[in-house]
Simulated scan of single mutants.
Amino acid sequence: MAKRRSILLIDDDRGIREVACTALEMVGGYDVSTAASGTEGLDKARTSPPDAIVLDVMMPGLDGPETFARLQQQPETADVPVILLTAKTQAADRTRFTALGVAGMLAKPFDPMTISNEIAAILGWDR
């Protein structure tokens, strides 16, 4: 049996973490861990690097872009693909986020029934 892929979900909104985690586990079959802040996410990613990270853009303190920059600086996480989760979907925002070098973006609100397939498509994972 193949190892289940692991995803670290970093979002300051507990409700979003709960819905996304349930959807990714139940619908997608992923192993999901969560973090409520950029700092917590950096620690979890460093100690147990996931196969991918889904990262909220707007968080208090350490926001998504700064968290991504720090993930890129850590040897343990520099090669982990990061997908930004954001309500900022204007063309200028998409251009700015793409320029960071993230693997892709998911729009908030997301559909819990399709988020697993969207992640798989962005990352080129088999579904």
Rank of each mutant, 00 (worst) to 15 (best):
4 R>Y: 01
4 R>T: 08
5 R>M: 11
5 R>E: 11
5 R>D: 00
5 R>G: 10
6 S>F: 00
6 S>R: 15
7 I>G: 11
8 L>N: 15
9 L>P: 15
9 L>D: 08
11 D>H: 06
12 D>Y: 07
12 D>H: 04
14 R>V: 04
15 G>F: 02
17 R>P: 10
19 V>P: 05
21 C>E: 15
22 T>N: 08
23 A>V: 12
23 A>I: 09
24 L>A: 10
24 L>P: 06
26 M>Y: 07
28 G>R: 09
28 G>V: 13
31 D>E: 14
31 D>C: 06
33 S>G: 12
33 S>M: 13
33 S>D: 15
34 T>H: 08
35 A>G: 08
36 A>H: 07
36 A>D: 15
37 S>D: 07
38 G>E: 09
39 T>V: 09
39 T>Y: 09
39 T>A: 15
41 G>Y: 08
41 G>M: 13
43 D>E: 14
43 D>V: 12
43 D>T: 14
44 K>Q: 15
45 A>C: 14
46 R>E: 10
46 R>W: 03
48 S>N: 13
48 S>P: 01
49 P>S: 11
49 P>C: 13
51 D>M: 04
51 D>K: 09
52 A>P: 11
53 I>E: 09
54 V>C: 14
54 V>W: 08
56 D>R: 04
57 V>W: 03
57 V>F: 04
57 V>D: 05
58 M>T: 05
59 M>D: 07
59 M>R: 12
61 G>R: 07
63 D>H: 06
63 D>G: 06
63 D>C: 00
64 G>L: 02
64 G>A: 03
64 G>I: 00
65 P>Y: 00
66 E>P: 00
66 E>L: 02
67 T>N: 09
67 T>D: 05
68 F>V: 05
68 F>L: 10
68 F>W: 10
68 F>D: 01
69 A>Q: 14
69 A>F: 00
70 R>E: 13
70 R>G: 06
71 L>F: 10
74 Q>V: 11
74 Q>H: 14
76 E>G: 02
76 E>T: 01
76 E>S: 06
79 D>W: 00
80 V>L: 10
81 P>R: 06
82 V>H: 06
83 I>W: 00
83 I>D: 02
83 I>F: 00
84 L>V: 00
84 L>F: 15
84 L>N: 01
84 L>G: 04
84 L>A: 12
85 L>I: 09
85 L>K: 09
85 L>V: 07
86 T>V: 01
86 T>M: 05
89 T>N: 15
90 Q>M: 08
90 Q>R: 12
92 A>E: 14
92 A>T: 08
93 D>V: 03
93 D>T: 05
95 T>Y: 12
97 F>T: 00
98 T>N: 06
98 T>C: 02
98 T>V: 08
99 A>E: 13
99 A>Q: 06
100 L>V: 09
100 L>G: 03
101 G>S: 12
102 V>F: 02
104 G>R: 10
104 G>W: 04
104 G>T: 01
105 M>T: 05
105 M>D: 05
106 L>R: 04
106 L>M: 02
107 A>F: 05
108 K>T: 02
108 K>I: 02
108 K>S: 07
108 K>G: 04
109 P>K: 14
112 P>T: 03
112 P>H: 03
112 P>C: 02
112 P>Q: 11
112 P>E: 08
114 T>L: 02
115 I>N: 10
117 N>R: 11
